[in-house]
Design a protein around this nucleic acid. Structure first.
Length: 586
DNA sequence: ATCTAATTCGACTAGCCAAG
DNA sequence: CTTGGCTAGTCGAATTAGAT
């Protein structure tokens, strides 16, 4: 099945190179994907053929797609200059452009064909692959190659797309389809470097003008859109955003610089402080040297003084030695005197002994006399004790007589006191009786007051019963009013008017459009009419969160999405996503 | 090679305000 | 009252590092 045509205008303007989707050939399909990979690397002979005007680096040599959009397996060798691809609608021409964009890292939104990477995987397949070969060779003296020691004459960028979850990624291969190991650089960064090196701008609308971009440029009447397109196409938008980023970085750096300056000031202050301390330390060191000198001087002065003192002491010692000699001479004379004195003492001792013997004899006589005196004193003591006993007996008799007289006086006084107490008790009794009579009168008055209070209490109870009967009557009225309100709400709930002022009119127009066959399937809505709130207290919160969605209508196919039932816009904003939410469009 | 969790970044939306 | 510009917040796709 013919898919596309490529015409190499650089070499042979009229010659056609017909490319075919190899997946649709039965015998090719049986070879499998791995065989195709080898073929991808083996076709260099075709690629190497070169005209005099072709570029040495940065042009596409070949593209290979597996399970990408409508392509099961597709491979295309580009001509060296201008290539024109043509084919019937749906044959996959745009898919090749999209593959070049997605394969070289463009955002999926810029390729116009899908929102996520997974949407580019062919229906029925779980993953897909894009392989793009870019020329990287040197011919002549100028060398514009990118990392030739890693890639050689061609760089193959491979991107794997997966349908579910993540896991897709980038792989880089050399001319011989060998995987290149990146050292310390992320795959995405490597791709950016390659694209920057070759100045490949796959998101620039001038480089790749998609159908949507061309419509935006050609048919939009708005100057802002045209200006936006101009900014993107000329790269000024990128320059502008880079300038903004640079300005931001500059501001951050100047802030850091200010901080560092203040930091330096602090350090300088610290340095001055340290210098001051250093000067002080040096001054102290000088003073310490001076102190050492003075200490040394002082020590030698002391030494000189001590030497003078020593001389003086030596002279005194000489004087003392002379005196000692004199004393020794005196001592000898004194010893002779002592010997004479001792002889005198001996004679005196003999005289003392004889006197002592005489004293002993006199002492024995005195002792016998003392014994006789002691026996006489004992006899006198016994006589004295007997006299004392007689005296104490006389005193006891006198004390008993005195006590009897006291008892007699006390008995007489007690008798007189008893008479006066009896008189006091009689007086007290009279007072108590008078007080009792007063209390009885008080009790009678209080009983009368109590009777009045009981009567008042009965009256208040009667009043309260009347009020209770009134309250019961009011409750009955309230229940009746509530049930009436519920009935009223139920009757209002059937109305669609609460979902918007124009909702009834819109509903009738939708009904009419459906009857006329404008819709494949009747739109469902308003959404709010299908929302059931289990607990009434959440109703307002839910209404607030859902907002205008409550008054929207739902369709389930792209045909019905484009149907307009009301051209004029009344009170609704149509800018956000008019075809999906604004009630006037469904 | 595959899967998961964390992070980044762009697209989208609601709300506010000013101009016509 | 409508429209358009601006901003803050949210959501989800894409990417990457790390584990298996």
């Amino acid at each position: 099945v013919r898919c596309s045509k490529a015409m190499d205008c650089g070499r042979k303007a009229a010659e056609e190179t017909i490319m075919e989707d190899v997946s649709n050939e039965e015998d090719e399909e049986s070879t499998g994907v791995e065989d195709e990979s080898e073929a991808f690397a083996d076709q260099h002979e075709q690629v190497d053929s070169r005209s005099a005007y072709e570029a040495d680096v940065g042009i596409f040599e070949k593209i290979r797609l597996e399970n990408f959009m409508s392509h099961h397996l597709f491979e295309f060798v580009f001509g060296s200059n201008v290539n024109i691809i043509c084919g019937q609608n749906g044959s996959g021409k745009s898919a090749i452009i999209a593959a070049l964009q997605i394969g070289l890292g463009a955002r999926t939104s810029s390729a116009d064909r899908g929102k996520s990477v997974s949407s580019y995987v062919r229906n029925g397949a779980s993953s897909g692959t894009i392989k793009i070969q870019i020329r990287n060779r040197k011919v002549g003296e100028v060398d514009n190659r990118y990392n030739p020691h890693l890639y050689g004459d061609s760089i193959i960028v491979e991107r794997k797309l997966v349908r579910t979850g993540s896991g897709g990624g980038w792989t880089f291969r050399d001319r011989n389809d060998r995987k290149v190991k990146l050292q310390g650089i992320a795959p995405r960064e490597e791709l950016t470097r390659i694209l920057d090196h070759f100045n490949l701008r796959v998101e620039n609308p001038i480089a790749v003008l998609t159908q949507q971009k061309s419509k935006q440029f050609l048919s939009s009447g708005k100057d802002t859109d045209r200006y936006k397109f101009f900014m993107e196409a000329t790269g000024l938008q990128q320059v502008k955003s880079e300038l903004i980023a640079i300005a931001r970085v500059k501001t951050e750096i100047s802030q850091i610089l200010d901080k560092k300056k203040s930091f330096v000031e602090e350090i300088e202050k610290g340095l001055a402080e340290l210098k001051k301390r250093y000067d002080l330390a040096q001054e102290m060191s000088t003073l310490e040297g001076r102190i050492e000198e003075l200490e040394s001087l002082w020590a030698w002065t002391l030494v000189a003084e001590e030497e003078d003192t020593l001389e003086k002491h030596k002279e005194q010692v000489k004087i003392f030695e002379e005196r000692i000699q004199e004393h020794q001479n005196n001592t000898e004379i004194c010893e002779l005197e002592v010997q004479r004195s001792r002889a005198q003492v001996d004679s005196l001792n003999e005289e003392i002994n004889t006197a002592t013997q005489k004293i002993r004899a006199q002492t024995q006589k005195m002792n016998s006399t003392r014994t006789e005196l002691r026996s006489l004193k004992q006899e006198i003591s016994i006589q004295g004790k007997e006299i004392n006993a007689c005296d104490s007996a006389i005193r006891d008799a006198a004390r008993r007589a005195s006590k009897l007289e006291d008892d007699l006086r006390a008995a007489r006084a007690k008798h007189e006191q008893g008479n006066s107490a009896l008189h006091d008790i009689e007086k007290d009794l009279e007072e108590k009786q008078a007080e009792k009579r007063r209390s009885e009168a008080n009790v009678e008055a209080m009983e009368a007051e109590l009777a009045k209070l009981v009567e008042q209490l009965h009256r208040v109870r009667d009043d309260m019963q009347g009020v209770d009967r009134e309250i019961q009557k009011s409750g009955v009225h309230e229940d009746r009013a509530r049930s009436e309100a519920q009935q009223y709400q139920k009757s209002q709930g059937n109305s669609l008017s609460k979902w918007g002022r124009h909702i009834l009119e819109l509903q009738s127009k939708i009904d009419k459009a459906f009857d006329e066959g404008k819709f494949k399937k009747k739109p469902i809505g308003p959404v709010g009419a299908y929302v059931n709130v289990k607990e009434e207290e959440w109703a307002r919160a839910i209404q607030h969160c859902l907002g205008s969605t409550l008054s929207a209508y739902l369709v389930d196919n792209s045909h019905d999405q484009g149907v307009t039932v009301c051209k004029e816009k009344r009170g609704y904003r149509s800018r956000a996503s008019p075809q999906t939410k604004t009630p006037l469009h469904v």
